[in-house]
Amino acid sequence: MSWNLDNDRPIFVQIVEHLQCDIVSGVYAPGQKIPSVRELATEASVNPNTMQRALSELERDGLMHSERTSGRFITEDITMIDKLKEELATKRIEDFLKQMERLGLSPREIKDLIAKKVKE
């Protein structure tokens, strides 16, 4: 499976997350046309209906819009993309902090370790 999906979480949710990452990381640039449902479904090895549903969800959120005949495009609203990027990063940092807490690290120790790692 070329998209590396987990087998215990809904596929739909994972497709949405994957595309969100592609948008904030610039795999798809603002305003860029994205491949068709069929192409994306083939690339991800998932059901085209599930892919369609994920794209509709991203459209509802305003991250994409479709034009009747010419296809589906990434939003040109860079503020929106930046906001999503921050949300996604914050979520990951929160998860990370929880794991560090479970290892018994204090906020200070976490900060020091990160600073050390970033320098490398």
Binding site: R38, A41, T42, P48
Partner: peptide, 13 residues
């Protein structure tokens, strides 16, 4: 994988 992709890419909605 080939076969499943054949199914997906030839699938008529």
């Amino acid at each position: 994988d080939y076969i499943l992709n054949t199914i997906i890419s030839n699938y008529d909605p």
